[in-house]
């Protein structure tokens, strides 16, 4: 089996992976980072979205072996020193989740989106989140949360993209 190196949430891992293993499975099964959820496993639902070299990517549509050498941030990498990321904080404040299954993908997608567009309109937020499906909330509170996070982050509440 090929050996690969992944830097996940700032920690470098040397892993032996079967080529058919998806990045999502390696994160979950080998690194026990089970915050990355697998919904549809065909790229539609967005629950498995992670940051791959600073950009959002579907970990269910990426073979771990092809991510060799990459820098990855999962939902576990968003909070720092026990402090929630402003986007996480806003999801909590705005009740932007019910069952929570889709939330990791929404958080990662939102964190990246706000780093590129710190002052979005509600329509831009909806467009940015259109690749993430939520079956509970009807999206209203999620849009509210991202809007709230953009406000707090513009006021300077910590980093937009986590740094390690």
């Amino acid at each position: 089996m090929p050996n690969i190196t992944l830097t996940v949430n700032g920690t470098q891992h040397r892993l032996e992976v079967d080529p058919r293993w998806l990045l999502a499975d390696v994160l979950r099964e080998q690194l026990n980072l089970t915050g990355t959820h697998l919904g549809c496993e065909q790229g539609v639902c967005g629950a498995c979205t992670i940051l791959l070299n600073g950009r959002p990517a579907r970990s269910c549509l990426t073979l771990a072996v092809t991510a060799d050498g990459s820098d990855i941030i999962t939902v576990e990498g968003l909070a720092h020193n026990g402090q929630l990321h402003p986007v996480q904080e806003a999801f909590w404040q705005e009740h932007a989740l019910q069952c929570g299954f889709c939330t990791p993908g929404f958080l990662i997608t939102s964190v990246h989106f706000l780093s590129e567009n710190p002052n979005p309109t509600r329509e831009e937020i909806r467009e940015a989140l259109s690749g993430n499906l939520c079956r509970c909330t009807g999206y209203q509170h999620i849009v509210n949360a991202v809007e709230r996070a953009s406000e707090t982050m513009r006021k300077g509440a910590t980093h937009a993209v986590p740094q390690d």
Binding site: G46, T49, L52, P56, L61, T62, T109, F113
Partner: peptide
């Protein structure tokens, strides 16, 4: 085309 996460790859 797709979504930002798809356009990354």
């Amino acid at each position: 085309i797709g979504h930002p996460a798809i356009r990354t790859r």
